[in-house]
Design a protein around this nucleic acid. Structure first.
Lengths: 136, 136
DNA sequence: GTTACTGCAAAGCTTTTGCATCCCT
DNA sequence: AGGGATGCAAAAGCTTTGCAGTAAC
């Protein structure tokens, strides 16, 4: 929470609710999940405010936008370098905190400046695996 | 082209144009780029047909859908295991054909079955770098 | 002759935007 | 007081779908 006070954003109740929802959140929520989550605390918040706040936080470098889920953007308040493992079935996402030492040799860079990387792991979570099993 | 004859899809002229456009294509085109590309050859093709054909090809395992570009899906006719490097500016994508040996230790898998992975590299392409430089 | 594909238009979803009002600082 | 934030509704993209007509097999 402390981090959000120092980034030149006005601290409105709606934003406090969003910050609070994101703080320590490991679920990699979508905008809609955030919207639904904070409306429990602050029921008049609009979708537009959620999106605008997420955009502001992204610009300030306080959150990352994940493109691993094809159907919607997911947000991650953990901005430390790490990777992700997604369930192909339910789209649940967990962190992968391993520092793979991956760099591209110059002769394969096509003269691009390489700035960063992110590994997407695909799999099936235990819950979805059990569901499949029980359908046999 | 030969590969598309053997997958139980009716060979319509529209599809032939799409197959032909995708064949050997290293640009990782979006649906719209494909649409515009094939209309040069077959001008009455509709967007719906493009999307439906891409969906059919995906189900048959003949193309991969990339989620690396946040604003639209990109399609890759190269289904061999490889990674991608995207320009953060113009969203151009090039292949990275290196086999990084990445696996997740069991104690970090959260009991997921891990099926595959894909590395997204981010950077700036030479063209966009030059544009930036000339603006100084 | 069947079955599947095409094309159009409409609809569906996620995300963005304009603008009047409101409220942090 | 002033500038930024909110909320509503409308719009903007991208993608999907229903359906009648058509073409591949």
């Amino acid at each position: 929470m402390e981090r959000y006070r120092k980034i030149n954003l006005k601290l409105t109740p709606q934003r406090m609710a969003i910050f609070d929802y994101l703080d320590g959140n490991k679920a990699h929520p979508s905008a809609e999940q955030i919207y639904r989550g904070i409306r429990k605390k602050f029921p008049t918040t609009s979708f537009a405010t959620v999106y605008k706040t997420l955009e502001a936080l992204k610009k300030k470098g306080q959150i990352h936008e994940l493109t691993i889920d094809e159907s919607r953007r997911r947000y991650d308040p953990d901005t430390n370098y790490h990777h992700h493992l997604i369930c192909l079935d339910c789209k649940s996402i967990v962190d992968v905190n391993i520092d793979f030492n991956i760099t591209i040799p110059d002769d394969q860079k096509y003269s691009y400046d390489v700035i960063g990387n992110h590994i997407q792991f695909f799999g099936v979570c235990p819950k979805c695996r059990d569901n499949h099993d029980s359908q046999k």
